[in-house]
Amino acid sequence: MLQTLFNGFVTGITMTLPALAVTLLFGVLKFANFAIGAMMTVAAYMAFALNAQLGWPLLPSTIVVAIVCGLLCIAVDVVTFKPLRDRGSITLMVASLGLGFVLENIARLFYGNSARSFAIEIARPFRVMDIRMNKEQMITIVVSTVAMLAMYFLLTRTPVGRAMRAVADNPSLALVRGIESGRIIRWTWFIAGVLLAVGGVLIGMDRAIEPPMGSSYLIAVFAAAIFGGLGSPLGAFLGALAIGIVSEMATLVIPPNYRIGIPLCVIALVLIFRPQGLMGQAHIRR
């Protein structure tokens, strides 16, 4: 029971970074990005290439991949999303779906379908109050928490972060105040890319690296972001934890192969009863 609770906590915290990325992208760009799963997969494979194939330690690999991914996201935005920016969120979503297929299959093109792992020794667990924990889980918890705090600092204490929040709140007003939206959008993509890359590596540490690894998290991550209120970073963090814990605890009562139904039910309930989510602000569109 306690063990399941802890497992759920770990599952949840693994999802916090992608959930943050989703909510950040949505906040500034106003569309749900369905390519985030594939972006994480690509990042994990890039880290795999540096770590397992070139023999770098995982930490520097991750840092390099995070920066590369951030830049790649900016490039992807310029090529794919920028020309479509004023066509409405549906077009952007469909483009992101297409992008997801492209990215996942680029990984497949180079690495095939078989399962791979980082070149790290996996270790036996240690016990705290009879709960089994392991090193990777500790790393995940620490990294995610640090990333969350860094995000909080970035959004509240830096000019870029404040500008991002301004654009998220009201793009036209931000423009009036002289905030250049192009620069803010580039920053947003960069940060999202970094979050997704680190998230992808953390997921790759948790399970096997294979092409569908990122997209298998898609629904749960969206559920976390919606539950927390799309656009709210703190909400995304709490939402991810809640979704992780609830779906893991639910396996005590429902067959585990229907776990995916839990985030789905959460989305439906939130949309019907509290559309603004946990931390989001109620707003009227237009």
Binding site: F34, I90, M93, L230, L264, R285
Partner: peptide, 17 residues
């Protein structure tokens, strides 16, 4: 589910799920 939220994004996610 579009009862209260009419944004396409939410609906797309629901259909995916």
């Amino acid at each position: 589910v579009t009862l209260r939220v009419t944004e396409e994004d939410y609906f797309a996610i629901v259909t995916l799920g």
